[in-house]
């Protein structure tokens, strides 16, 4: 085992197996956007302070800008492109649409990924859970209210009324 400049990595992203070589200091965000050309994941700050690059790694929301590409090895990644179900918007995406949770839309993919991870972990979240789950996702347009509403709605539609 030797330190290398180019690191081979293999992982799955949105159900697809990928193997490629990444630079030692390359971020996961760079690989996703510029190598795999999945442009849904956004760069808003590059330092983990805005959440626009949130992806789901092994079921957990993380900032793709704070993750080294080399750390993708063996992981199961989901980006916003992976939410689509048979070319249709998923229940979560439809809830965002119908509850007016999208304004400029730049934070939206990150918001979706944070809420997707939340709903997998906790199908019947209370408002506090939702607020906590998206408080690492900055939004400058919506004031968050309709986003929280959309996530509550999606949870209801997916898993029924809160027990």
């Amino acid at each position: 085992m030797e330190p290398c400049r180019q690191v081979p990595v293999a992982f799955t992203i949105n159900g697809r197996a990928v193997s490629l070589e990444v630079a030692a200091d390359e971020t996961a965000l760079h690989v996703i956007r510029d190598r795999l050309l999945l442009k849904g994941t956004k760069e808003g700050c590059g330092i983990g302070e805005c959440g626009a690059c949130t992806i789901v790694v092994d079921g957990k929301a993380v900032n793709a800008c704070l993750m080294l590409a080399a750390q993708l090895q063996g992981r199961n990644i989901m980006t916003v492109e992976g939410l689509i179900e048979k070319h249709e918007l998923s229940v979560l995406q439809k809830a965002f649409l119908e509850d007016h949770a999208v304004q400029c839309g730049f934070c939206t993919p990150g918001m979706l990924m944070s809420s997707c991870a939340l709903l997998k972990d906790k199908p019947r979240p209370d408002k506090g859970d939702i607020v906590d789950a998206i408080s690492g996702n900055l939004c400058r347009c919506t004031g968050y209210q309709q986003v929280v509403g959309a996530i509550q709605d999606a949870a209801r539609r997916l898993f029924g009324e809160k027990a």
């Binding site: 442009k39 849904g40 999208v102 730049f106």
Partner: peptide, 15 residues
């Protein structure tokens, strides 16, 4: 419903 929301929700390359 906002006309541009769906493609943003899909993560389409619009920016």
């Amino acid at each position: 419903l906002r006309r541009d929301a769906a493609e943003k929700l899909r993560g389409n390359p619009v920016f």
